[in-house]
Design a protein around this nucleic acid. Structure first.
Length: 457
DNA sequence: ACGATTTGACCTAA
DNA sequence: TTAGGTCAAATCGT
């Protein structure tokens, strides 16, 4: 939609719709302003919605405003509807299409068959509004809407991100893959899973990045107009991702990538139960506990963890760096700690505050060498560092809550988490294991590698 | 049985 | 003519 179109159409909008549009735009402007403030001062103490939420609000408001305009222009008998169609068929969009197989006036689909008899749905000359017809898809039959296809894509919002994962908070359906000239990796094509259910036109193209094969270059085309159901959309969390460009506007959902594959098992030791008494945390809601058990996040992200010493794996143990007021000397690992059972809880009193030293250990899982088992003992009483780049994290909370926020468990803010022993298993390709295990960003806390040892000595 | 993915054919734009 | 994008039958996975 161009400026002239907006202007010409605005003339036919009712006063009520004009008010709606202005309201939406103003709302978007407010969200944009908030986002600007947040970006200028990302570590401010004042509570504010996450950048993701703000960007979502901006895009939602503007998209809704545009939808109102577009819905007005596409009403039957609307002169502007004709103008819109003319726009879509003019110039670069106006090339005739083969097989006038769809009659938008009758609402019926006409098929054409290719030389090999394959059934096809052709494109009509120029763009036309979506019209439903039944098509066979594999062995199932589903309602299909023939859309404006690539013509509408010309003016679609597009942006590209570089991310360690292909996941985002939308459900996608793969519809194609192509080898690309002078490119080592093929390009995969995805459409929104709700393309036919909700006429959502969003698509994305994913390709392994040439410069960094560990990263995915994802191009998003079009903004989602669907309302995904909660159980089908993954939870949005930030991870390693970068905005590469934004051709027009930026969809806030694009750069927000979900977390790596994590298998979380939670267990409670006597030590940690007693430790909860040392803090103001309350016991975890049993319902929450059931949710935590074996909670899985699907994502292929590689997060560096672990070290290898020759051919044998070694444990890596970490202490929270925010315990600088505490005794940093853990006294090494006691001989009887060598083995599979960890025991690192140490109660330390600093001034009037009794703290638990948070430790974690990382070890290759014996059962599955592609997995890393991280055991967290104790809980953080420190504030997570503001050096973290994870905007989704509540920095004032402890690591447990941070994790839970990142993982998107529902209503986690309403729960005060006790200090469980938490074992996280991460699925990581071993070849991606770097030597430096202290700089990973699995959680928002900074860890010091205070020792590595061979297991089972 | 049915939804999702694969993959070769087809289509359009350049 | 060619490269990139899409379709849809075949196939896979649950």
């Amino acid at each position: 939609m161009n400026y002239n179109m907006l202007c010409s159409e605005s003339g036919s909008l009712s006063a009520r719709k004009k008010r709606e549009i202005i309201k939406k735009i103003v709302k978007g402007q407010k969200a944009a302003t908030q986002l600007k403030i947040l970006l200028q001062n990302p570590f401010g103490t004042a509570p504010s919605p996450s950048s993701h939420q703000l960007m979502t609000n901006v895009l939602t408001s503007f998209t809704q405003a545009l939808s109102i305009i577009q819905s007005s222009s596409s009403q039957p008998g609307s002169a502007n509807g004709v103008a819109r169609r003319d726009l879509l068929t003019s110039g670069a969009y106006g090339s005739p299409l083969t097989g006038s197989s769809h009659d938008p006036m009758s609402g019926h689909c006409r098929e054409k068959r290719s030389q090999n008899g394959r059934r096809e749905l052709g494109y009509r000359e120029g763009g036309f509004d979506e019209l439903g017809c039944v098509r066979k898809y594999g062995r199932s039959v589903s309602l299909v809407y023939i859309s404006e296809k690539r013509f509408s894509r010309k003016g679609a919002v597009t942006w590209t991100i570089l991310s360690s994962t292909t996941d985002d908070d939308h459900a996608w359906r793969k519809y194609g893959q192509k080898g690309i000239l002078n490119s080592e990796f093929p390009r995969s094509y995805f459409r929104c899973s709700y393309k036919y259910d909700q006429r959502c036109q969003a698509v994305k193209q994913v390709q392994v990045d040439e410069d960094n094969p560990r990263m995915y270059r994802t191009k998003y085309i079009g903004i989602h107009t669907c309302n995904p159901t909660p159980n089908t959309a993954t939870h949005p969390t930030t991870w390693e991702s970068y905005f590469l460009n934004s051709d027009h506007d930026s969809d806030p959902r694009g750069p927000l990538i979900t977390s790596p594959t994590l298998f979380i098992k939670q267990d409670f030791s006597k030590e940690t139960h007693t430790s909860s008494d040392l803090t103001d945390h309350k016991l975890l809601d049993p319902i929450m506990l059931s949710d935590l058990k074996d909670f899985e996040l699907s994502n292929p992200t590689v997060v560096p963890l672990g070290k290898e010493f020759g051919n044998s794996t070694a444990d890596n143990v970490y202490s929270c760096t925010d315990s600088q007021n505490l005794d940093m000397d853990f006294g090494g690992v006691a001989p009887d700690d060598f083995g599979t059972h960890f025991h690192f809880d140490k109660g330390v009193t600093t001034g009037a505050v009794t703290s638990m030293i948070k430790t974690k250990q990382v070890q290759l899982d014996k059962e599955n060498p592609n997995m890393y088992e991280t055991t967290f003992v104790g809980h953080h009483t420190c504030n997570a560092t503001t050096m973290s780049t994870h905007s989704e994290i509540d920095y004032s909370s402890t690591a447990w809550e941070s994790y839970l926020l990142k993982f998107g468990l529902p209503n986690v803010q309403d729960h005060h988490i006790s200090s469980p022993n938490l074992t996280i298993k991460e699925e990581l390709p071993k070849e991606d294991t770097p030597s430096d295990v202290t700089s990973h960003n699995l959680d928002p806390n900074i860890w010091i590698d205070y020792g590595a040892r061979r297991d089972g000595i």
